[in-house]
Simulated assay, not measured.
Amino acid sequence: MTAGNPSVEDTTAWAAEPMSRDKVVHAALSVIDRDGLGALNMRRLATELDVTGGLLYHYVDNKADILQSVAALVLGEVKVPQDSGSWRQWAIELTTSFREAFVRHPNVLPLMMDGLPRRLSTRLYSRTAQVLVDGGVPRERVSTLMEGLEAIAIGHAVYSSAALRGSAPDFGERQQKFSPLHDALSAVDMTADQRFQACITALLDGFVPPERGSERKEGT
């Protein structure tokens, strides 16, 4: 099954799978993607799977267990970059992949607001810390930089999903009354993805200016 926006074929194949914890979690993500986090409860999930509510407890403990597993499923979509030797490029690609996973599943974003990614992806975060240290980021700044990268990924995904729904701030004709704002908006010549990566690059360069930061040796 392709999480987030499954095709008819994917949905049919998923529905035909025997009952399992994995099937329950994927069904929960499908409900959340389609109808929002608040729509998920055990009764709704049982209806989605066409089973009795009691059967679900053979595979999951409770709703909290399901939500944590849903978050882990979304985080599992994050692609760990290949080691190209450039720690900055590695960090940019990883953070971009985080953002893409969140954009695919915007209704899951509230689950990511309390440090859940760090608790569920300890190995990945440990790897990221090592990459940053090897790249020349002072150890005392590594956790702050990682927090900043995570915040940019989550925040930009929130804004992107709002824009897709048409609920993001739109200055419209009002921008004409404020010349500096109008000029700044008119001067934008980057796509949303390019602006996102520019923000990441600025954050990385703020912690370790390019002329001072050493690049990791390939294979480190």
Rank of each mutant, 00 (worst) to 15 (best):
P6V: 10
T11Q: 05
T11D: 15
T11L: 15
A13L: 08
W14T: 06
W14S: 10
P18F: 05
S20Y: 13
S20W: 04
V24E: 10
V24T: 12
V25F: 06
A27G: 12
A27C: 09
R34Q: 07
D35Q: 13
L37T: 02
R43I: 11
R44T: 15
R44I: 14
R44D: 07
A46G: 13
A46F: 14
T47M: 09
V51L: 14
V51Y: 02
G54N: 12
L55K: 14
L56Y: 06
D61S: 10
N62F: 04
K63P: 10
I66E: 04
I66H: 03
S69Y: 01
A71S: 04
A71H: 00
A72N: 04
V74D: 03
V74Q: 03
E77G: 15
Q82L: 08
D83K: 00
S84K: 02
S84H: 03
G85C: 03
S86I: 03
W87K: 10
R88A: 03
W90E: 02
W90V: 01
E93N: 08
L94I: 04
L94R: 07
T96C: 08
S97C: 14
S97K: 12
R99W: 06
H105S: 14
P106Q: 00
V108E: 02
V108K: 01
L111F: 03
P117G: 02
S121H: 06
T122R: 07
L124C: 00
R127E: 09
R127F: 05
Q130L: 05
V133R: 13
P138H: 13
P138Y: 11
R139I: 13
T144M: 13
L145Q: 05
G148M: 09
A153L: 06
I154V: 14
G155S: 08
Y159E: 14
Y159K: 11
A162V: 01
R165C: 01
G166I: 14
P169I: 00
F178L: 10
L181H: 00
H182L: 10
H182K: 02
A184E: 03
S186Y: 10
A187L: 05
V188F: 01
D189K: 07
D189I: 02
D189C: 05
T191I: 00
Q194M: 05
R195F: 01
F196Y: 14
A198D: 08
I200K: 06
I200W: 09
F207N: 04
G213N: 04
